[in-house]
Each structure stands twice: as structure tokens, then as C-alpha cells.
């Protein structure tokens, strides 16, 4: 598992639509047909200024190295956290910020 990668604009106006891209390296092993034990993320969550804005529940048909693109309306102060939670409860997170004026 390597560091999650996040793409955010550096700055935006209040209320402006911004594009967010995320990627995390993870094999997402379902153990449905292979010999390896199950190793799956359960949930991805993005917060802006402490409030959940976007989330995703992973099921077996989600691809390895999960990637998302979504769009939010920027709000000051523009602090973002991104959290991937494994089925075993372990969580990986990344932070980012957009200068909102």
C-alpha cells in the first residue's frame, strides 16, 4: 500500500465547481476465485471542512487500485480529508487544501 494520490486545484472561488481525483494502490482481493485471502477496502470518504461530501462503499465488482473523480462546490476554508477504510477497520488517509476566496 503506497501513499494515496490526490489531485485538487490550488485555489477556487467560494461556490465554484472543483474537480477532485483520488487514487490509492490496493489489490482489492475478493477471494471469490483466487487462492489469496480476502483483502478489500470497505469505504472511501471525502470530507470538506469536516463535513462528509462524498463517499463510496466498495463491493466485489470494484476494481483494484480504486480511483474516483467527482466534483464539489468549494467552500472556505477548503480543508479536505480523504479516508479509505479496510474491511478489517484499518484506515488510510490523506489531506489536501484548496485556497477558497
Amino acid at each position: 500500500m503506497s501513499t494515496p494520490r490526490i489531485r485538487l486545484p490550488r485555489s477556487a472561488s467560494e461556490g465554484e465547481e472543483i474537480e477532485i481525483r483520488t487514487l490509492i494502490d490496493h489489490p482489492m482481493i475478493t477471494a471469490v476465485s483466487g487462492p489469496d485471502p480476502r483483502n478489500m477496502l470497505a469505504r472511501f470518504e471525502a470530507t470538506m471542512n469536516g463535513e462528509t461530501v462524498f463517499a463510496y462503499d466498495f463491493e466485489n465488482g470494484s476494481a483494484a487500485n480504486p480511483s474516483f473523480t467527482f466534483f464539489v462546490r468549494a467552500a472556505a476554508p477548503g480543508q479536505f480529508t480523504f479516508t479509505w477504510t479496510h474491511e478489517d477497520g484499518h484506515a488510510y488517509s490523506a489531506e489536501g487544501s484548496v485556497r477558497v476566496s
Partner: peptide, 28 residues
């Protein structure tokens, strides 16, 4: 999915903070 070993692929949760209902991901 209609022909995977299990039908569930995933589930997005959106809020009014999302600017438009457009999402991208990769599926199996």
C-alpha cells in the same frame, strides 16, 4: 453487475455539496 460472481460493484453517496451528479470509477 449481471454476470459477475456477485452482483454488487459499489455504491456512491452524494450530498448537496457535490456540484454535479457526475462520478468516475473503474469496475470489474
Amino acid at each position: 453487475a449481471t454476470a459477475n460472481p456477485e452482483p454488487g460493484i459499489g455504491r456512491f453517496h452524494l450530498t448537496p455539496r457535490v456540484a454535479k451528479a457526475e462520478v468516475f470509477t473503474r469496475i470489474r
